[in-house]
Design a protein around this nucleic acid. Structure first.
Length: 493
RNA sequence: GGGCCAUUAGCUCAGUCGGUAGAGCACCUGACUUUUAAUCAGGGUGUCCCAGGUUCGAGCCCUGGAUGGCUCACCA
C-alpha cells in the first residue's frame, strides 16, 4: 500500500509510457526547430488563397476525435486554433498508428493541404507530422477550463493555455506599454533607466524592501519610486525624460496592491502640472484608441469616456460636494478638527487642516470619482515634493487623476527650491521620528542636485497596472500581473 | 493583523441526519475514413488541504494549523 502511494498518478504514468513508446518507434518526442509558415488564424483568414495548397502549421493538440482510420483534432497556437484531419490512406498505416500515442497537450508540427469539411470548417489534411513536445501532464477540462484562482496564479502557464481571455489581457497589456513608449518618444521624451537598488529609497511615502550588498557591506533598498533620480536628470539638462519600470513597496497585498508593480514617471523641464494634465489625458485616451479601438470603454458594466479634456475639480470642492464640509470656510487646524469630529471621523491629535482635508477626501470622495477627473489642490503636508500654490501656501500645485474610483495618475509642478525642499524633508523626518515609518527620509544628494538649479518642471506618475486593469475591465491587479506575489507552496501531484 | 468563505478524482463540481466516496469532462479497453461538447459498448483512477480530538464509526462535528478568495484595518 505504501509503495503504491509513491507511484505517480496513473494519468502521468500513461503519458510517460506513451513517450517511451514514441522513442521505441524511433520518434523523438521532443523535436527540434519546425518552420511553421502560418499561424492558425492566417490559414482561416486567407482560406480563399490557400485552399488546395500545402501549408505548415504548428501548435498544441487541444482536442482529438478519432473515427478509427481517420481522425480530427484541433491545434492551438499563439493566434487561434485550426482543425487538422488525419487519414490512414494519406499517412500510411505505420504513421497513422502513431496517433494512438497522441495526447491532448502535445505539440506537433504538421504539413498538409488546406480544405473545407462538409460541415464547413477550414481544416488542414495532414500529409506529414512531426513531434515537437510530448505533454506529460493532462490539461484542465475543455469546457470549464481552469477556474481555481490559486492554480491560475501559481501556474499561469496553464491559465494561459486554457483561458484565451487571459492571454488576450496580457497581449493588450504589452501593447499598451509599447504604445505608451511610442507616444512618449514621438513627443520628444527620452527613456532612461535609474537605479532599482538604492542607498536611500525616496520619492514616495512607503516602506521599502531591504537587501544587502556583500562586497560593499551596505544596506540597499529597492526603489519605491523613480522620482528623485529622474529629477536629478532635469538638473543635468535632460529636458524631457521618462522611465517605465518596476517599483517595490513592502506593504499589504490587496486587489489593487501588489508588492512589485509597474509605473511610468514623466518629467518635463520648463513645464507645469497643466502640461502634465494634457499628457495624462492624451496618453490614456490614445492608448485606449490604439489598443482597444475606442476612447470609450465599458468598465464593470459602466461606460467611461476617456476623451480629453477631462474635467477638473479642486479637492476642497470635491470634499464639499461629497461630505458637505467646506474647508475654505475652516480657518485653522482647530476648526478642521471640529468638523472631522462632527463628521464622525476618528482622528489623532496634532493633525493639521491639510491632513484633515485629505482624510475627508479619502473617506468621502475617492470612490465616487467614476468618470475621469483631475483632482487639484492637494495639501502641502501630503505633497512634500510639489511646489506650493502662491495663492494658498497650504496647498500644493498637484493633481491626481481618478477613474472608476481609482487613483490612476499623480502629478505636480515640481518643487525646485532647495531650501523649501530641505524644510519639507525635515518635516517628514519629524513625522518619521514620531513613528511614521512611511515618511520620507532625507536625501542629501537630491538637495545637493537642486542646489545646482533645477528648472521649473512638471512631473507625472501613472500606475500602469491600474491603468491596464481599467482598460481591460479587470478588478484584481493579479489579473493583469502575469506572476502575482503569492506565499510559496509546494506543488504536488 | 481581524472577520467571513473555500479546499473532495487530472479539471469542473455534488455529497442528505455522522454509517462502504459520486457525476460530467479527461483518461483506459474495444468499434468506427468528413467529426467538432463526435458517437456507441465497457472501466472509477481518491492522502476528501494538514495535524489532533469526539465517536462503535468522521468528507461531514470540535480544536489548532496551511493556502487562497472577499472584506475591514493598513497603504500614494
Amino acid at each position: 500500500m505504501a509503495q503504491e502511494q509513491q507511484q505517480p498518478n496513473e494519468l502521468l504514468q500513461i503519458r510517460r509510457q506513451k513517450m517511451e513508446a514514441l522513442r521505441e518507434k524511433g520518434i523523438e518526442p521532443y523535436g527540434n526547430k519546425f518552420e511553421a509558415e502560418y499561424y492558425s488564424l492566417e490559414i482561416n483568414e486567407e482560406f480563399d488563397r490557400l485552399e488546395g495548397k500545402e501549408v505548415t502549421v504548428a501548435g498544441r493538440l487541444i482536442s482529438i476525435r478519432s473515427h478509427g482510420k481517420a481522425s480530427f483534432a484541433h491545434l492551438q497556437d499563439y493566434r487561434g486554433q485550426i482543425q487538422i484531419y488525419l487519414r490512414q490512406d494519406q499517412l500510411g498505416p505505420e504513421k497513422y498508428e502513431i496517433l494512438d500515442l497522441f495526447d491532448i497537450g502535445d505539440f506537433i508540427g504538421v504539413r498538409g493541404e488546406v480544405f473545407r469539411t462538409r460541415k464547413g470548417e477550414i481544416t488542414v489534411e495532414v500529409i506529414d507530422f512531426t513531434y515537437l513536445a510530448k505533454a506529460l501532464r493532462p490539461l484542465p477540462e475543455k469546457w470549464h477550463g481552469l477556474k481555481d484562482i490559486e492554480l491560475r496564479y501559481r501556474q499561469r502557464y496553464v491559465d494561459l493555455i486554457v483561458n484565451q481571455e487571459v492571454k488576450e489581457t496580457f497581449i493588450k497589456r504589452s501593447r499598451m506599454i509599447s504604445t505608451m513608449r511610442e507616444l512618449l518618444n514621438e513627443w520628444g521624451f527620452l527613456e532612461v533607466e535609474t537605479p532599482i537598488m538604492q542607498t536611500v529609497a525616496g520619492g514616495a511615502l512607503a516602506r521599502p524592501f531591504v537587501t544587502h550588498h556583500n562586497a560593499l557591506d551596505i544596506k540597499l533598498y529597492l526603489r519605491i519610486a523613480t522620482e528623485l533620480h529622474l529629477k536629478r536628470l532635469l538638473v543635468g539638462g535632460l529636458d524631457k525624460v521618462y522611465e517605465i519600470g518596476r517599483i517595490f513597496r513592502n506593504e499589504g497585498i490587496s486587489t489593487i496592491h501588489n508588492p512589485e508593480f509597474t509605473s511610468v514617471e514623466i518629467y518635463q523641464n520648463y513645464a507645469d502640472y497643466e502640461d502634465m494634465m494634457r499628457i495624462t489625458e492624451n496618453l490614456i485616451y490614445q492608448i485606449a484608441v490604439k489598443v482597444l479601438g475606442s476612447g470609450k470603454l465599458v468598465f464593470q458594466g459602466k461606460e467611461l469616456d476617456l476623451t480629453p479634456p477631462w474635467p477638473r475639480e479642486s479637492m476642497i470642492e470635491s470634499v464639499r460636494k461629497y461630505s458637505g464640509v467646506d474647508f475654505s470656510a475652516l480657518a485653522d487646524d482647530q476648526a478642521a478638527f471640529e468638523a472631522a469630529r462632527k463628521a464622525g471621523l476618528e482622528l489623532d491629535k496634532g493633525l493639521s487642516w491639510g491632513d484633515i482635508l485629505y482624510m475627508f477626501f479619502e473617506e468621502f470622495c475617492e470612490e465616487q470619482l467614476l468618470t475621469p477627473v483631475f483632482i487639484t489642490g492637494f495639501p502641502v503636508e501630503v505633497s512634500p515634493l510639489a511646489k506650493k500654490m502662491e495663492s494658498d501656501p497650504r496647498l500644493a500645485i498637484r493633481f491626481e487623476a481618478f477613474i472608476a474610483g481609482w487613483e490612476i495618475a499623480n502629478a505636480f509642478t515640481e518643487l525646485n527650491d532647495p531650501i523649501d525642499q530641505r524644510e519639507r524633508f525635515e518635516q517628514q523626518i519629524s513625522k518619521r521620528e514620531a513613528g511614521d515609518d512611511e515618511a520620507h527620509v532625507m536625501d542629501e544628494d537630491f538637495i545637493h542636485a537642486l542646489e545646482y538649479g533645477m528648472p521649473p518642471a512638471g512631473g507625472l506618475g501613472i500606475g500602469i497596472d491600474r491603468m491596464v486593469m481599467l482598460l481591460t475591465d479587470n478588478i484584481s491587479i493579479r489579473d493583469v500581473i502575469l506572476f502575482p506575489t503569492l506565499k510559496p507552496k509546494l506543488l504536488s501531484d
